[in-house]
């Protein structure tokens, strides 16, 4: 395990400033200690997959990165900006970090196109025409431009999740966070969303993805983070991590995941 941790340390040294830096982050829900001394560096352009049993704190960790949750101890820096109570810094960070949720969270009262142009118009102050062109560009990239005039409720789950990805991309984020993006989908729709994410990874986007899709992790991830009970237990390259689990906890987890598939 110390070997894998050295690997991150060296990665952090060679690359200039990390896109995301978590240093000894701690968080409690009441008395429940949900993040314990979590430290992680993600370099620009790096793809990280986070896995672990439910309740291990993986969602909480990535939700701390754009402050949908607040951490109580430790440091989180995104693009060199530290997350604090400073609202200006928070604005700057949220503009650079896109997020995709398990339950899509599209805005049901807006069309697909309006879902995508809302933030560019109101946050980036982009002219409507330009925002719409941008939205159509990304909707084409997730392969659903013909749905632009429809409402979210008229789309399938897989289509909705691809719209959610396009909506986040319209803010031209430098970093994308995925919080179990395929967990709420039927099996036949998982692939279309994963394909979209693979395509995004190929563009060199910095990504942190919470998922149990091990095939996706092998194909795309530079590193896999295994979390359990609020701690990062193991970090490593996907093949290395999956084939040589160092801890009992990861071995158990992997056997459960493989049995499930």
């Amino acid at each position: 395990m110390s070997e894998t941790l050295d690997h991150i340390a060296s990665a952090a040294r060679t690359d200039a400033p990390p896109a995301i830096l978590l240093d000894k982050v701690n968080k409690w829900y009441g008395a429940l200690h949900v993040l314990r001394d979590v430290s992680l560096n993600v370099a620009l352009g790096e793809r990280v997959v986070v896995c672990g049993p439910s309740g291990s704190g993986k969602s909480t960790m990535i939700r701390c990165i754009n402050r949908l949750e607040t951490h109580q101890e430790g440091t989180i820096k995104v693009n060199g900006i530290e997350l604090s109570d400073d609202l200006k810094a928070l604005d700057d960070i949220r503009r650079e970090v896109g997020m995709v949720f398990q339950s899509f969270n599209l805005f049901p009262h807006l069309t697909i196109l309006e879902n995508c142009t809302l933030a560019p118009i109101w946050v980036r102050r982009m002219p409507k025409k330009e925002a719409e062109e941008l939205a159509m560009h990304y909707l084409t990239r997730v392969r659903i431009p013909e749905q632009a005039k429809k409402y979210p409720g008229q789309l399938s789950g897989g289509q909705q999740q691809r719209v959610a990805i396009a909506r986040a991309l319209c803010m031209k984020p430098k970093i994308m966070l995925f919080d179990e993006p395929t967990s709420a989908l039927d099996p036949e729709m998982i692939k279309e969303v994963l394909d979209t994410m693979v395509g995004l990874a190929e563009t060199g986007m910095t990504m942190i993805c919470v998922t149990h899709e091990m095939g996706f992790a092998r194909q795309v991830a530079d590193r896999v983070v295994f979390m359990d009970r609020g701690e990062i237990v193991e970090i490593g390259e996907p093949n290395h991590l999956f084939e040589n689990p160092q801890t009992e906890r990861l071995k158990t987890f992997l056997s459960q995941i493989l049995r499930g598939h």
Binding site: N66, R94, S103, N105, L106, L118, A119, W122, V123, A168
Partner: peptide, 11 residues
């Protein structure tokens, strides 16, 4: 989730 999605977009 609507609050969260909108905030995550920077609104």
């Amino acid at each position: 989730g609507q609050w969260e999605a909108a905030q995550a977009l920077g609104l």
